[in-house]
Amino acid sequence: MSDAAAPKIALVGVEKSFGRKRVLDGIDLTVAPGESLVIIGGSGTGKSVLIKCILGIMRPEAGSIRIDGAETVGLRRRGREQVMRKFGMLFQGSALFDSLSVWENVAFGLVQGRGMDRAAAREIALKKLAAVGLGPEVATLSPAELSGGMQKRVALARAIAAEPEIVFFDEPTTGLDPIMADVINRLIVSSVRELGATTVSITHDMVSARRIADRIAMLHKGRIVWQGPASEIDRSDNPFVDQFVHGRAEGPIQMEVRAA
């Protein structure tokens, strides 16, 4: 395989359990450089756990996770920090730091993670805030003073502030009205395109998935049950995908009451 075809992210046989509950049951997945992969699936199917395993926040019990061809499972602190510099992440609830102002949130990774001068980091933060449609008047506010949609924009600005090679999006439109959800989807597409980054998103919002994805993979009970180009999602001939895309209660997917 040539370097050009080498996957940016490659997962082989990844397994993760919590007690007796097996959340990831042998995940095989690759993401090409510059590709936008969206992982869909119901609540509690292991989407967030999968993304946290790739990020190194959780450690899988078995399997391999390679970033740019290098194994990342079991990396120690220094090695993990090096890999982490390639990542940006937008969390489901935005996860902005309450004790810091908006610009300090956006500049956090630059100042604390990379040792950049605060003044220089502030300039970058203001540019990134402008890129997501927020003016400098927002910069000094506290996250608690912002609406949910504005918090998501700030979280997006923070995720792309250090110009990462790989950006993860965890339920980017959850809790937003349809118009704000579309604004966030467009911002994700435009800012990621500008960066040339590889992205992995997890969502159960099909509108968002269609807007963001080059390729879609469906996760069910810890396994990838279907994957293919986003354009083929409506003719997958997969009963799991059909049920999920059309939002039907009847079908092979039986929703579990307990969370993973």
Partner: peptide, 12 residues
């Protein structure tokens, strides 16, 4: 609220 996970992803 995943702020601790966010710290990790920001290399801190």
């Amino acid at each position: 609220t995943e702020q601790i996970d966010a710290l990790t992803t920001l290399s801190t």
